[in-house]
Design a protein around this nucleic acid. Structure first.
Lengths: 187, 187
DNA sequence: ACCTGAACACCGTTCAAGT
DNA sequence: ACCTGAACACCGTTCAAGT
């Protein structure tokens, strides 16, 4: 028993949502992909909202773990920010996929409350991490200012990914990130 | 005959897509809203892709007209950029809606080719305009550099809208734009 | 504990038929 | 020129029934 049905479902669903979003996620296609019937999916995840919430929750957890790891290995600011943006780049490299949180934000109006909460948590995880990174460089800056800057950096990278995806051109992502760095937005 | 069925359809569809996206757009709901049967919608727009393409095409045209108008009345750079970001802010004010192009970019994988082309055209319209605005301030800069900066500004504002929508908090949008301006990204 | 078939109200699309 | 009902293959969800 190397593969667990629930895990297979989550894995397939995560790939599907990052590519097509919440609305386009189909229990029937999902079931076909892993070889069960669509009614069986509901045994593991009663509703589509439950599945998406589980996906987003794990996604936020994974991000948290990854970001902690980044800080564990000390490096200069520019390398750190490059490692950070590389994660968003990797999603595009993976068949032009998006950050789960980004694509869910676009579909925000259609999300059950339980999913919205996890989207918020992902954003909070990212901005808190960025605040820590910025605070180390600007110890005299007001927390309010750092929070604004952190949210701006996060939003700018999400936007870079969104626009590059819409042009199905990963070079656009690199071009945009380079312009951000040149402007001093990440400093 | 003050209202035309085709126009009513486009108007209702545009509001729906900006709120819920392409996948969630329903011919049946649309038909109910304007008082015809869903089969009749196909008379005006054979497929959902045709409707979305018509929507996006007009959206790009409207943006072009608006941006030309902005340049017709000369004003300082900061006021110009404020007027530009105000359009994206207005979408959020309108029931937390998004830029049509932004939400369609998120659903890019599910879009028919005819819609993708219009998304590209909207992006091109915006970046070309931004290049003109930047070129007036930086006459010595290389076109390549200006294009990168223009695309970055556009992406950053789309990202600000996306993140603010995901937090259903328009104040976040203002906070992010302010941080962009403070960083010099818009200069 | 896990899966299934059948039913329900939805969806976009097609088409022959109406006016 | 514009609209419609009926059909088709889809969708998420529920539930009684199987093992």
């Amino acid at each position: 028993m190397t593969t667990d049905t629930r895990e297979s479902l989550m894995s397939a669903a995560r790939a599907a949502v990052q590519a097509h979003g919440y609305n386009a996620l189909s229990f029937r296609e999902l079931a076909k992909e892993i070889g069960i019937k669509s009614a069986s999916v509901h045994y593991h995840f009663p509703t589509k909202g439950d599945l998406a919430a589980a996906l987003a929750s794990r996604y936020a957890d994974d991000a948290s773990t990854f970001l902690e790891g980044l800080l564990a290995a000390p490096q200069d600011h520019r390398s750190l920010m490059s490692a950070y943006t590389a994660v968003f780049r990797a999603a595009l490299e993976d068949d032009n996929r998006m950050c789960l949180c980004g694509i869910l934000s676009a579909e925000y109006d259609d999300l059950p409350e339980q999913v919205r909460v996890e989207v918020d948590r992902f954003t909070a995880t990212n901005t808190r991490w960025l605040v820590r990174v910025l605070a180390a460089r600007h110890p005299k800056s007001a927390p309010k200012e750092l929070e604004g800057r952190a949210l701006a950096i996060f939003a700018s990278i999400e936007g870079a990914q969104l626009v590059a995806r819409g042009r199905r051109n990963i070079h656009s992502f690199d071009e945009i990130i380079q312009a951000y760095m040149a402007s001093g937005l990440f400093d």
